[in-house]
Nucleic acid binder design. Structure first.
Lengths: 152, 152
DNA sequence: TATTGTTATACTCTATAACTATA
DNA sequence: TATAGTTATAGAGTATAACAATA
């Protein structure tokens, strides 16, 4: 029996923590009658308009999947496709007023709940955790994650 | 301009982290030809057998949703339903050998990738963070999260 | 030819409601 | 009656492949 290395144990904690956050996301979404994916879309679109290709990259979705997601969100009146670019192929997706409102409220509520969960951490602990996560996130952006590459 | 409180900043980091881990989960799953949900099921089932009701609680899923998930995993030969309880209504879901292997490999790979991302932490830091996260997770279990309750 | 976005198709995932079988 | 699990149904999310329109 070898000892589990600290990095490994931390990785496992992060996975569990992730499942918890996912749950908060889903539960909060239900209160606004949107799915977690729709919520994520709204949050990404807050204060910006993006084309389908950009969106699909930022959400890690195939463009065809995104078409459906945007359709559903548009049908609910939370976003619209705009075709006012020079390039007439392109469309930009923007939030409606209602969509903006929900994006803000949803984000506020998720943050609030998570804040409660981490509430009894000391400020140093909180800061430490934040900076570690920041490092993880930064690392992930640098390292492409060898997505499309075959198992070389 | 008021300062953003540490808890709030942490909350936002958590959300981003979650999306990253979700992505790692999905991408790794694809390499084993399983969905993230199936992967999570396999991981929960590793070294235990659970009934549908227990499973549905631990995965935050309706029992009917779980029925389908288990069906699909069973069809792929990764798990089986067993009916060897005293209570003849109950079934326990257990991994097959192949299921176990995939559970281990998947878990190994996900942990490995995350470990890489947090790799350059000192062991003490790593350990501290793990226990901080453990505290958050424990807190979440205690506090039910007022799921079914109306907005009182 | 390359790029932007959609359509067609086939699965998977999920919840709600109604159900069966056992306790 | 209560509990364990399933079925029926409807909708959402996703990827692959083929496509249309524009550049």
């Amino acid at each position: 029996m070898t000892e589990t290395p600290p990095g490994r144990r931390l990785a496992e904690s992060l996975v569990r923590l992730t499942h918890l956050v996912e749950h908060v996301f889903a539960e909060t979404g239900r209160r606004y009658d949107i799915t977690p994916q729709q919520a994520q879309l709204l949050c990404v679109l807050h204060h910006t308009q993006l084309g389908m290709t950009e969106l699909s990259r930022s959400l890690h979705l195939e463009k065809s999947s995104l078409t459906g997601l945007v359709n559903r969100v548009e049908r609910r009146g939370l976003a619209v496709r705009r075709r006012d670019s020079h390039d007439r192929r392109e469309c930009r997706v923007a939030l409606t007023e209602q969509g903006s409102r929900i994006a803000v409220d949803f984000h506020e509520e998720v943050s609030g709940r998570l804040e409660e969960l981490v509430g009894d951490l000391a400020p140093e602990e909180s800061g430490q955790l934040t900076s570690v996560i920041a490092r993880v996130l930064a690392g992930a952006e640098t390292e492409p994650g060898r997505e499309g590459r075959p198992d070389s």
